[in-house]
Design a protein around this nucleic acid. Structure first.
Lengths: 141, 141
DNA sequence: TATTGTTATACTCTATAACTATA
DNA sequence: TATAGTTATAGAGTATAACAATA
């Protein structure tokens, strides 16, 4: 029953994890607030960023990690905002969500604000950002 | 009208930001899934982690960045789960949310699983975690 | 038979506004 | 008057189950 990792190592990992969660929380709040400034809910913002090309509703559901039934309402609301259209695919069961001109404007605006307004851009030097990028890549691998 | 930052620098910052959002997303999904494995919604999990000591409902609202009215329902549901109790404070307007024995068990379990199950613990060496911690501190400063 | 999208249902999270009890 | 918590209401995100159209 000897522990796989030392108590000190676990505490240290836990402290780093806590910081990562705080940064993640901050990043999410940044994003949510930017989306809101454009009249979008966070989920609507995420959906627009996935629609650089028209995609089946099913693909949205997968990408957003939610049940397909939810995409119906999400698409309804984005349609009501004038941001997207439903386009029937070759396979006539499929409906592609396609950005309207207004939707493209929103999407580009959102992407630009997220890039410029991020904490990362503001608080780190170029070399620190590269160091961070390397570590994040490892986390995502 | 000369740009404050070069195009290349902006692209690089944007790429780092995107990675950070992906990691943030992953961290959140990890947390949500751990909370769910304990029968908690993500918000209920976050609330339990804030209740190491009894706190006024108002303080919860502030910490969770939500309106005070929502904490009523949140507390109702945590009470129904047997995780917390409402305790009237010295100022009799105030109700403190206090973990029950069951709530403490849940909270400790949640904290332990988050620490151990995190991507950070799994994918980085000790020295990489320290490097990451330093960078995250800068982001949070 | 299997898949795509929809509908119905239910629960949770979120905000605003009006209310109560207390300070 | 001001603050803590509640209630009512409304919109949005989430899942499950049953369904129609299509493959």
């Amino acid at each position: 029953m000897s522990p796989r990792v030392s108590k000190a190592s676990l505490d240290e990992a836990q402290a780093t994890t806590r910081r990562l969660f705080q940064v993640a929380q901050r990043a999410r709040e940044d994003f949510d607030s930017i989306a809101e400034s454009l009249g979008l809910t966070p989920l609507q913002g995420r959906a627009l960023l996935m629609l650089e090309r028209p995609r089946p509703m099913r693909a949205l559901a997968t990408g957003l990690h939610c049940d397909a039934s939810n995409v119906t309402g999400l698409a309804d609301r984005l349609e009501r905002l004038g941001a997207i259209e439903r386009v029937t695919g070759h396979d006539r069961r499929v409906k592609l969500l396609s950005l309207t001109a207004e939707g493209e404007r929103l999407r580009d605006d959102l992407a630009a604000r997220v890039a410029v307004g991020s904490t990362v851009t503001a608080k780190l030097t170029r070399s620190e950002r590269q160091q961070l990028a390397t570590l994040l890549d490892k986390l995502l691998s």
